[in-house]
Simulated scan of single mutants.
Amino acid sequence: MKPKQDLKQRTKLFSLRVIKLVQALPNDKVSAVIGKQLLRSGTSVGANYRAACRAKSQADFINKIHISEEEADESLFWMELLTEAEIMEEKRLEELMKEANELLAIFSASVLTAKKNRIKP
């Protein structure tokens, strides 16, 4: 597989893991609100990465990959809240949070590289 395809699959698997996590949350108001936010940001990571792969220009790519970066960071925020509010044990979220951090690092590096390589008029 090409590296882009690997990251497409990886971000899709991240989304699926987020979906399963949200489905496992307790059935209460706080969990529902945080879960909804996590579901939106977590599934948006892969959707925006796929959009970046179809970018029409370098500026479009930078914009979309930056959105993936922001959504990965936001997903981390919601997972941190789940653990700090003692809704879910940190141990249960460790691997998913590790993956979110790795995706965040990949997207951050991609944004920096794309900006550095941007063709200036």
Rank of each mutant, 00 (worst) to 15 (best):
4 K>Y: 07
59 A>E: 15
53 C>T: 11
119 I>P: 01
107 F>P: 03
52 A>G: 05
44 S>E: 04
34 I>N: 12
29 K>N: 11
93 L>N: 08
9 Q>I: 11
87 I>M: 14
109 A>Y: 10
23 Q>R: 15
26 P>L: 09
100 A>N: 07
19 I>A: 04
17 R>N: 15
32 A>H: 14
80 E>G: 02
64 K>A: 02
112 L>D: 14
90 E>L: 12
81 L>G: 00
15 S>P: 04
3 P>R: 13
12 K>I: 13
118 R>T: 13
24 A>P: 06
27 N>H: 14
119 I>L: 14
73 D>N: 12
31 S>T: 04
65 I>W: 02
86 E>R: 15
118 R>C: 00
47 A>W: 04
35 G>R: 09
33 V>W: 03
59 A>H: 07
75 S>M: 05
41 S>K: 07
52 A>D: 02
102 E>S: 03
65 I>R: 04
20 K>I: 00
72 A>V: 02
109 A>Q: 14
11 T>M: 03
10 R>I: 02
45 V>Y: 05
31 S>P: 06
60 D>N: 04
70 E>I: 01
84 E>A: 05
13 L>T: 07
38 L>S: 03
72 A>E: 01
32 A>Q: 15
105 A>I: 02
92 R>N: 13
103 L>K: 12
76 L>A: 01
104 L>H: 13
37 Q>V: 00
65 I>C: 00
104 L>I: 00
40 R>S: 04
112 L>P: 00
119 I>S: 11
46 G>I: 07
20 K>G: 07
17 R>L: 06
22 V>H: 01
26 P>V: 05
96 L>H: 06
61 F>K: 06
100 A>L: 05
113 T>I: 09
102 E>T: 08
45 V>M: 03
2 K>E: 04
56 K>C: 01
84 E>R: 15
55 A>K: 10
105 A>L: 13
111 V>S: 06
108 S>G: 13
3 P>Q: 10
10 R>W: 09
56 K>Y: 12
86 E>K: 15
10 R>G: 02
37 Q>R: 11
120 K>Q: 14
107 F>D: 08
16 L>Q: 15
9 Q>M: 12
114 A>D: 09
19 I>G: 00
115 K>L: 10
86 E>S: 15
33 V>Y: 10
50 R>G: 04
116 K>R: 14
78 W>Q: 05
38 L>H: 05
9 Q>R: 14
32 A>T: 11
110 S>W: 11
73 D>Q: 13
91 K>R: 14
95 E>H: 04
63 N>V: 01
33 V>A: 15
110 S>L: 09
12 K>T: 12
36 K>M: 03
47 A>H: 05
55 A>N: 04
61 F>M: 08
82 L>T: 05
72 A>M: 02
44 S>C: 08
121 P>G: 09
76 L>S: 07
37 Q>I: 00
6 D>Y: 12
101 N>C: 11
88 M>T: 13
36 K>V: 01
93 L>W: 08
45 V>L: 08
36 K>W: 04
108 S>N: 12
11 T>A: 03
98 K>E: 10
100 A>W: 09
12 K>V: 10
112 L>T: 11
58 Q>A: 11
47 A>S: 12
102 E>Y: 01
65 I>Q: 05
113 T>F: 06
31 S>G: 15
86 E>M: 06
106 I>C: 02
59 A>M: 03
